[in-house]
């Protein structure tokens, strides 16, 4: 092993690494965003207060049951196994020949959605009852309360957990190499396979993964500060004595 070898290897294979890193970022960004949307929807539905109307109550129970099954199933099985089941299963059961990239996006999205649903539910529960009551007292319904008062606060509060999920996705998309997604781990393995040298390519991959996750951390911190707004406020008009 030498520094010289690593540099030559990078010089010869950088498009492979770059494409791999690009794919990793693409799948994890889309997966996190779609997953967050699924999580928000599921979280809002799971916190709807029990309706008075009987048929509505039964319908809501049914929806909640389906959501629970979804969440428990996808949190409770490894993504690598889900990837195999969904990718090969869709071909076997429905005769759909899934594009691997589409398959990757679907798997990461629904997996993230299951985790995010619980994160959002926790976020909604943590909002003070008084916020809900004040919104209801001025005549807002559940949807208006959620959109205008609760969710903006929930989103701010779950941003660190969402960042965590994003970072986990960047790393865990590596398991998608089992269905042939050309993400960073897959590309690194290919580079290593050509030269039969393993340490150097994976060392480079290691650095690339860290650069990606750390950049995400920094960007999200910046967003958190943005969302918090300025510490000070300006008075308008003249202050009465």
């Amino acid at each position: 092993m030498s520094l010289e070898y690593i540099l030559t290897m990078i010089a010869n294979n950088w498009p492979m690494f770059l494409r791999g890193a690009g794919m990793t970022l693409f799948v994890s960004i889309i997966g996190t965003i779609v997953g967050a949307i699924i999580g928000l929807l599921a979280g809002v539905i799971r916190t709807i207060p029990v309706p008075e109307n009987k048929s509505k109550r039964i319908f809501l129970k049914l929806v909640n049951l389906i959501l629970s099954i979804y969440i428990e199933f996808f949190r409770g099985t490894p993504m690598i196994v889900q990837a195999m089941v969904i990718f090969y299963g869709s071909a076997l059961a429905f005769g759909i020949d899934m594009n691997v990239t589409v398959a990757a996006l679907v798997i990461v999205s629904i997996n993230t959605g299951a985790y995010m649903a619980e994160i959002v539910r926790g976020g909604v529960i943590s909002i003070d009852r008084g916020q809900f009551e004040a919104a209801q007292a001025i005549g807002m319904n559940h949807m208006q309360t959620m959109l205008n008062v609760v969710l903006p606060q929930v989103i701010r509060n779950i941003l660190p957990a969402t960042g965590n999920q994003f970072i986990i996705n960047i790393k865990d998309t590596s398991v998608l190499n089992v269905i042939g997604v050309t993400e960073l781990y897959f590309q690194t393995k290919t580079v290593a396979g050509i030269s039969f040298k393993y340490f150097e390519p994976f060392f480079v991959a290691c650095v690339l993964y860290f650069v990606m996750t750390f950049s995400v951390t920094l960007i999200l911190r910046y967003f958190e500060r943005k969302l918090d707004g300025p510490e000070n406020y300006s008075m308008t008009g003249t202050k009465a004595l």
Binding site: Q131, A134, Q136, A137, P152
Partner: peptide
């Protein structure tokens, strides 16, 4: 009940101002 509530102004012991609004 939502239309009815708009006709009643409520002031709480704990204020309950919306934290995400100025």
């Amino acid at each position: 009940i939502h239309a009815y509530r708009t006709k009643l102004g409520m002031v709480f012991q704990q204020f309950n101002l919306f934290n995400n609004h100025n």
